[in-house]
């Protein structure tokens, strides 16, 4: 397997079907280290499925996904080890409601990375401080607003020191006034050089932060490019049509 040394994830011919419903029909993409990729597309186009295939939350039904040179689409690979290095942020936050914020963040590093409780908590508090939530460490998720929950979900994933962060519509479940605080955290993260794949409807954010925008239509990558060109000079009629509706 020869991959570009800089590529963190290389996707080849990715396919996913739910029964007879073929959602992804052969996708190829290379994601470089430090690259911020924003994935857009109409609902039902397969963009969330694509993201969820990247860490095998959905098992691909065809193709390969090379992460650090290992094909994680291969069922004989221990996916759990590789998932530790891929953080994921969900639309519905999915914080663990029976644990405090601090416990939410430290349980995975303690149990999986065998960090000591002290080290893990120190790290978690440092990350919480960076997103302005240090004083909420001992609260439970239900005491937080949506924006705060999502910021916690982001730093919970960061506690595992991931190489890649996957975002599945991270602002779609938020009240409008809370979208900004979450996007700000993501911008900071991008500026620090984190490799990110983001499914979103925030076109302004895509324009500002993305290194590359990809447009998924009917299960394939229909068009991709740097944001200025992507938004300024779309080529395919489907993308033109889509952009005219959302911009």
């Amino acid at each position: 397997m020869t991959t570009d040394k800089r590529a963190v994830i290389t996707v080849k011919g990715l396919e996913k079907a739910f029964g007879a419903n073929q959602v992804l029909r052969g996708m190829d993409i290379e994601i470089d280290k430090g690259e911020v990729i924003v994935v857009i597309g109409a609902s039902g186009s397969g963009k969330s499925t694509f993201l969820r295939c990247l860490n095998c939350l959905e098992d691909p039904t065809g193709g390969n996904i090379y992460f650090d040179g290992v094909d994680i689409a291969d069922v004989s690979v221990d996916i759990n080890v590789h998932r530790q290095k891929m953080g994921m942020v969900f639309q519905q936050f999915n914080l663990f409601p029976h644990m405090t914020i601090l416990r939410n963040m430290t349980i995975a590093p303690i149990k999986l990375l065998k960090m000591t409780k002290e080290d893990a908590e120190k790290k978690a508090l440092g990350l919480l401080d960076r997103v302005g939530l240090k004083d909420r460490a001992n609260d439970y998720p239900n005491q937080l607003s949506g924006g705060q929950k999502q910021r916690v979900a982001i730093v919970r994933a960061l506690c595992m020191d991931p190489e890649v962060m996957l975002f599945d519509e991270p602002t779609s479940a938020l009240d409008p006034e809370m979208v900004g605080e979450v996007l700000d955290v993501m911008k900071k993260l991008a500026a620090e050089g984190m490799t990110m794949v983001i499914v979103t409807h925030e076109m302004g954010f895509a324009r500002e932060v993305a290194d590359r925008v990809i447009f998924i239509d009917e299960g394939v990558i229909a068009e991709q490019g740097p944001p200025a060109e992507f938004f300024g000079n779309p080529k395919s009629p489907r993308l033109k049509d889509f952009l005219s509706k959302v911009l």
Binding site: N55, N80, Q84, M86, M88, F96, L112, M160
Partner: peptide, 8 residues
């Protein structure tokens, strides 16, 4: 899914 995505 959140648990699995953390690597559990």
């Amino acid at each position: 899914e959140a648990g699995r995505s953390l690597g559990f």
